[in-house]
Design a binder for these strands. Structure first.
Lengths: 164, 164
DNA sequence: CAGGGATATTTCAGCGAGCAACTATTCAGC
DNA sequence: GCTGAATAGTTGCTCGCTGAAATATCCCTG
């Protein structure tokens, strides 16, 4: 009647708990960041990436690649961010198909306060709850998963952000 | 220039890795489940919950509570699932404000194949990659986070699914 | 047992993300 | 150089989720 699957009970519990925990974590941090900056978490993350890049700018395609999302999302998102004045589009001289998204001064300013709130929320909802061992374990587990889900990405991401 | 935040580098790395890993994991499993059943992962999860409940049915409000999402989502989702014939709405006699969503035979059948694919994907993208220690660590970490993000939920969920 | 506040659900409008189709530019080969 | 394939981005449409307002029913108090 009840046991529908061929699941190992322990696996199922782990899946359910982990899935729910990280969804709720994302949602909570999203609420906090949005309340402090007005920006959706994923938009805020784009600003963070730009702030770390040389000249505070990245190509649309680089943003899509680093975030593992579709070009159309970046196009929409940068459009909104540009409307809000957080970002400006800069035409690439060497390849005129390409555009840079460049963080504006307003973007930097917004990022300062939003970043503080992001850190606070991150700590409150995650790091303060975990022991140092658990943090290390989580990093290890996440990297293990990423090795399969986004192979060769960690190196690549830093390469992009350091200017190839 | 580059270091924008007051973040501990280790914390930032852990946050980035964990966030990305579990987002990609969700997306990958979603793709697999959708390819095999045509259902979004979150809709499939509703069917799983119903299959575990007494009489294969739960109140709308129970579905909302257990999944930690908004009633309006359940309303839309059950509407779609009912259109597809996976679920039927049953009016509650004792409280006529309330409706049950009840899994149909077609729903059970769909769930059989989708469930197999879900388990396969879960294993391929998660459990097969982790050591037994890591699985235990992840369960522990997830529960720690859930204690704060959804306090008193684990008991509650099982209570709902066992009929109060 | 009538009135009012709580509760269960639906409906509507708006947002972020993805897919597919389209435009514009670059590049490779003849 | 010119044609055609590949690449960079954008646009339009659909989908699932949320928040707020609306509807229906229940329950408590007087």
């Amino acid at each position: 009647m009840s046991a529908e699957g061929c699941l190992d009970t322990d696996e199922e519990r782990t899946w359910d708990a982990a899935t729910l925990a990280f969804r709720l974590l994302d949602q909570q941090v999203e609420r906090d960041v949005q309340a402090s900056s007005g920006l959706p978490l994923t938009y805020y993350e784009l600003l963070v990436l730009l702030s770390k890049a040389d000249h505070r700018s990245l190509r649309m395609s680089e943003l899509a690649e680093v975030t593992h999302t579709r070009p159309s999302r970046i196009s929409h998102a940068v459009g909104k961010l540009a409307e809000g004045g957080f970002v400006e589009r800069v035409h690439c001289e060497s390849d005129r198909r390409s555009w840079f998204a460049k963080l504006t001064d307003k973007g930097v300013e917004t990022l300062r306060t939003a970043g503080a709130e992001h850190v606070r929320s991150m700590r409150e909802n995650m790091f303060d709850l975990l022991s140092p061992e658990q943090r290390a374990q989580l990093l290890d587990i996440s990297r293990t998963l990423l090795d399969r889900l986004a192979p060769g990405t960690q190196d690549h991401a830093t390469r992009v952000l350091r200017g190839l």
